[in-house]
């Protein structure tokens, strides 16, 4: 057999650097009102263009793995979660923010990962431990982008 299959043992110890950044910063406090987090996590508005890039990045935002929407490469979008086309008409920025920060606050059975939560998780891989999926700034960028998705 070729060397292709001889040396898999090291392949099992892979590390990944697909993620542009990981965040170990302390979580910023936020307030939930109703089904929303009305105020920006950073105190500033996000950048919609940066948010679009995050949403479209399968390793960073992960959004397109489950959601369809008006993004590039429709064939590579998931259909496990609601389509995000026109989501800005249906949800306010604050509602979008809570759904990203911790959707389990709205539906505890949701499959949507909590993008800004580090506790209550099992067996998190060491390099992701105590880190949020996105930073507060990135969440604001995505919120800005999604809130602007209008029909």
């Amino acid at each position: 057999m070729s060397s292709a299959s001889k040396a898999l043992a090291p392949a099992l110890l892979l590390t990944v650097c697909a993620i542009s950044q990981v965040y170990a910063e302390a979580l910023r406090p936020f307030e939930i009102e109703g089904d929303a987090i009305p105020r920006s996590l950073t105190g500033a508005p996000g950048d919609a263009a940066r948010g679009a890039a995050i949403v479209g990045n399968r390793q960073l935002g992960l959004c397109v793995l489950c959601h369809g929407g008006p993004f590039a490469e429709p064939r590579m979008q998931g259909n496990l979660a609601p389509d995000l086309t026109g989501v800005g008409d249906r949800l306010s920025a604050g509602q979008l923010r809570l759904r990203m920060v911790d959707g389990s606050k709205i539906n505890q059975d949701t499959i949507m990962p909590s993008y800004y939560r580090t506790d209550g998780l099992e067996r998190v891989a060491p390099r992701f431990r105590d880190r949020t999926i996105l930073s507060a700034e990135e969440i604001e960028d995505v919120v800005a982008y999604l809130a602007g998705l209008r029909n």
Partner: peptide
């Protein structure tokens, strides 16, 4: 297609 990614790819070691 991805910017940077590591995977085993069935070959030797981390690539």
């Amino acid at each position: 297609r991805r910017d940077v990614l590591i995977l085993g790819a069935g070959a030797a070691g981390s690539i």
